[in-house]
C-alpha cells in the first residue's frame, strides 16, 4: 500500500486510464502498459478465428429473417431480445395457450400447464401434457439476461409467463434437437454444446437441473413431436397423438439414439417470430454518450 502514497491514483486518472488515455503523470505508465497489453494489438483486417462460423450463422439468419413474413422485425425467438412482448401479443398467445391446454388436457386434465409448472424431476409422471407446455417455455429464461439490459435476471427457473409464446416453439425445438444430441439429455458426452445448438447447460437450466433433463426432454417430445408437423423435427418418434393425452409421456424420448441435426431448421421457423419489435428494449438504451473509443470502425 505504500505505493499509494508514492503515486496516488485518483478517480480522474482512473477514468483516463480506462478510456485509454495516458495520464499526464508518468507514474502510471506501468498501468498504461498493462491495460494496453490486455487490449492487445490492433487487429489486422484479416480473417479471424471463428469468423466463418459466425458468418455462416449470419447468413442463415439473413436468409430466414425476411422469410418470416409474419413479423420480420421479430427477434429470434430463442434469443436475447425476446423478452419484450406487446401486451396484445401476450393476449393473443394467452388465448392460444388456453386453447391448446384445453385440447391437451382433454384427458388427464392436469392443469399444471396453467401454473407454468416446470417439469418435475423424475418427471415421467408429470411430464405429461401440461408440463410440456409450460416448462419448455421456461427454458429461454436465461436468454433474457442477454438483452442489453443484461443482467442474468431469471436464471434457472422457468418462468411460466414467458412460456406461452409461440416464439418459444423454436426454442423448444432447438432444445429438443439438443436432447437428441445429448442422448435424450443424459449423456452430455457427445457433441459439443455449440454443435447441439443449445449448450447442455442451457438445457439443464431450462429443465431445472441436470437430473431433470431426461424428463424435460420427454416433455418436449410430448409437446413437439405430437403437435404440429413433427415432420420437420428430425428424430421425432412417429406422431403419437395419444401421448399427449395421457399423463405420462415416456420420459425418455425414444429417439435418443437418433442423430441430431445440428442446427435444426427450427431456429429459422418464421412462424415463431413474435411480431412485437422486441429487440430494441435493450439495445436502444445502451448509453451512447461518448463512444467509448473503440477501434471498431475501420
Amino acid at each position: 500500500m505504500s505505493i499509494f502514497s508514492r503515486r496516488r491514483l485518483g478517480r480522474r486518472q482512473s477514468e483516463q486510464l480506462l478510456d485509454g488515455v495516458r495520464p499526464a503523470s508518468p507514474a502510471f505508465d506501468d498501468l498504461v502498459g498493462l491495460l494496453a497489453a490486455a487490449r492487445g494489438p490492433q487487429p489486422a483486417d484479416a480473417e479471424l478465428p471463428g469468423e466463418q462460423a459466425a458468418l455462416a450463422a449470419f447468413r442463415r439468419a439473413v436468409s430466414t429473417a425476411p422469410a418470416a413474413g409474419v413479423a420480420p422485425a421479430g427477434p429470434h425467438p430463442l434469443e436475447e431480445n425476446s423478452p419484450v412482448r406487446t401486451l396484445a401479443l401476450r393476449r393473443l398467445l394467452a388465448v392460444k395457450v388456453l386453447a391448446a391446454s384445453v385440447l391437451t388436457v382433454g384427458l388427464g386434465g392436469v392443469a399444471m400447464a396453467a401454473t407454468g409448472m416446470p417439469l418435475v424431476p423424475g418427471g415421467d409422471h408429470h411430464a405429461a401434457t401440461p408440463a410440456a407446455h409450460a416448462s419448455p417455455a421456461g427454458s429461454p429464461s436465461d436468454r433474457p439476461g442477454t438483452t442489453p439490459s443484461g443482467r442474468e435476471t431469471r436464471s434457472g427457473t422457468p418462468s411460466a409467463t414467458r412460456t406461452r409464446s409461440t416464439a418459444h416453439r423454436a426454442t423448444h425445438e432447438k432444445q429438443l434437437v439438443a436432447c437428441w444430441a445429448y442422448g435424450a439429455g443424459r449423456s452430455k458426452a457427445t457433441p459439443s454444446p455449440v454443435k447441439a445448438g443449445v449448450p447442455f447447460a442451457d438445457l439443464a437450466r431450462a429443465a431445472g437441473g441436470k437430473d431433470r433433463v431426461a424428463a424435460y426432454c420427454a416433455a418436449l417430445v410430448a409437446e413437439l413431436c405430437t403437435k404440429a408437423d413433427p415432420g420437420h423435427l428430425p428424430g421425432c418418434p412417429k406422431a403419437d397423438p395419444t401421448r399427449r393425452a395421457q399423463g405420462s409421456p415416456s420420459d425418455r424420448p425414444t429417439r435418443s439414439g437418433t442423430k441430431p441435426a445440428t442446427r435444426p431448421a427450427a431456429s429459422g421457423s418464421p412462424t415463431d417470430r413474435p411480431t412485437a419489435r422486441p429487440s430494441r428494449s435493450a439495445p436502444d438504451r445502451s448509453p451512447t454518450q461518448h463512444p467509448s473509443q473503440t477501434r471498431t470502425g475501420r
Binding site: 459466425a54 458468418l55 455462416a56 450463422a57 449470419f58 442463415r60 439468419a61 439473413v62 429473417a65 422485425a73 421479430g74 427477434p75 429470434h76 430463442l78 434469443e79 436475447e80 431480445n81 442489453p148 431456429s267 419489435r277 422486441p278 429487440s279 430494441r280 435493450a282 439495445p283 436502444d284 438504451r285 445502451s286 448509453p287 451512447t288 454518450q289 463512444p291 467509448s292 471498431t296
Partner: peptide, 14 residues
C-alpha cells in the same frame, strides 16, 4: 449473428 437482423439500436448499443 442470428439475432442481428432484428437488433435495434446503434453502434454503442450493439
Amino acid at each position: 449473428a442470428r439475432d442481428l437482423p432484428s437488433f435495434r439500436g446503434d453502434g454503442d448499443g450493439f
